[in-house]
């Protein structure tokens, strides 16, 4: 097991993503950050705090996608995680979804469905810390912390200090 990204790398990646979000949207006046629990929510909060340091406050929320998953019948029932919409809602906003790892794209498909239930954003963009490839759906990220070529039997583990005591991204071998 080896760390691909360490704490400082993660910080740098999130800072760059924050600047790219401002650049892409010509400011952040209509940007809303929605993190996908658990780790996407913490990453979204970190991006929000970086943007705040840059003088741009953005509404922050979380979006649980459990009820929209297409693999529900393949596993025991999952506990629901928190969905919190920011006060201004998402209607007509530029929503940036934030997740830790982009893999098959199925989570993001479910997130797009969940988002559709909540309103009609002007645009939906996707920010991920790691893109590890092996897409099963036509989905791509707008902002990527690190492109990580992997083989499909490896797994990518993102640890964040908010839940795991340490910041790092690791690749572990065949399960």
């Amino acid at each position: 097991m080896s760390a691909i990204l360490e704490s400082a790398d993660i910080d740098r990646a999130l800072k760059r993503i924050s600047h790219e979000i401002i650049e892409r949207n010509h400011g952040v006046s209509s940007v809303v950050l929605l993190g996908i629990p658990t780790r996407g929510a913490y990453l979204a909060a970190r991006i929000a705090s970086i943007l705040k340091d840059l003088g741009s406050e953005v509404p922050l929320g979380t979006l649980d996608i459990t009820m929209h998953r297409d693999d529900l019948r393949l596993r025991p029932p999952r506990p629901l995680l928190s969905t919190v919409l920011p006060a201004g809602g998402i209607e007509g906003k530029d929503v940036v979804l934030v997740d830790d790892v982009l893999f098959s794209g199925r989570t993001i498909r479910a997130a797009l469905d969940a988002l559709g239930e909540l309103g009609r954003p002007k645009t939906v963009q996707l920010a991920v810390l790691v893109d590890r490839g092996h897409r099963e759906l036509p989905i791509r990220a707008d902002f990527v912390g690190k492109n990580l070529p992997t083989s499909s039997h490896e797994s990518v583990k993102v640890s964040l200090s908010e839940v795991d005591d340490i910041d790092c991204v690791e690749i572990t071998g065949a399960r």
Binding site: D64, M67, H68, P79, L80, T83, E117, L118
Partner: peptide, 23 residues
């Protein structure tokens, strides 16, 4: 407690404009 927690989340989700979930 899991049932009560799940109920609370579902109430939040279905209080929006669309009440229906595809689950």
């Amino acid at each position: 407690l899991n049932v009560l927690g799940t109920a609370a989340e579902l109430e939040k989700i279905t209080s929006g404009p669309t009440k229906k979930l595809p689950t």
